[in-house]
Amino acid sequence: MISSDVIRGYNDTIILYLLLDGESYGYEISKNIKELSDGKYIMKETTLYSAFSRLESNGYIESFYGEESFGKRRTYYRITPNGLAYYKEKCEEWELTKDVINRFIKEWNV
């Protein structure tokens, strides 16, 4: 399990990635994060929903109500063009970060 401190700066990137292929909703996204990371990262509800709120107020995603079984309306999210641009930026930033940090990581052959 990854500590949430380390990954904090990239929660938004993870969520945006999962919206690249189309709209989705809270539980589906959190389930996908868990599956794609082989259960190594589980995003907490509060982290997920603060990210939604932040992304939405920055105009990177937009939300809308979709009909759902059990008669409950469910909030869906979709990525905006701004969000896509931001995502690309974050990908570049990560490449750079990864490159820099890797220079300070020692391979330990035990």
């Binding site: 907490k44 509060t46 982290t47 929903y49």
Partner: peptide, 8 residues
């Protein structure tokens, strides 16, 4: 897996 309400 709820997290921390302060975050919200």
């Amino acid at each position: 897996e709820f997290g921390n309400i302060e975050e919200l």
